[in-house]
Amino acid sequence: MATTGEETFESQPQEGETRRDFLTLATGAFGAFGVGAAAWPLIDQMNPAADTLAASTTEVNLEPIQEGQRVVIKWRGKPVFITRRSEAQIEEARKVPISALVDPEKDEDRVQKPEWLIVVGVCTHLGCIPLGSKQGEKRGEYQGWFCPCHGSHYDTSGRIRKGPAPTNLPIPKYTFLSDKLVRVG
């Protein structure tokens, strides 16, 4: 306010300018960081919550599943196909030459125990659920699964053989807790 103060400022305009520039830059940087930091919680809240993450395992009793039978269970809100494969089905999956596959993967790498095939039942094309798990449903040309939305055919190892889907049915993380008990997730 005092006139003397103003004169001091007036007599050293250059120093004042640089100080102001530095100030403006520093404050701008601080402010931008603050806005970004404040935005993060608002974005991160849309990620899965702690209870959602914790509840993402499902235990399945394999006891009642007969040879050749397929069951569908729900894991993380999605279907998981569990197949107790017959010798013939395992044979069929293993005799295919790797070079004939769209997404080359050995059947041995897709199962922990050859008898049990566990795959996520979501078509890798656009997310429909392929047919073939229930009796009498169309299983496609390779006796696996057939997606009715855009006609993708999967084989008895859940691998894509024909149609628009780009990759094989994914394998979820699972552990055999005992011979007849598996935990998915």
């Binding site: 306010m1 103060g5 400022f9 102001r20 100030l23 404050t27 601080f30 603050g34």
Partner: peptide
Amino acid sequence: ILTGLLYAIKKRVWSQLHN
């Protein structure tokens, strides 16, 4: 800190007014 910086800027900007 941010408020301190803003105060400094505010003082600087307003001091021009008294010229």
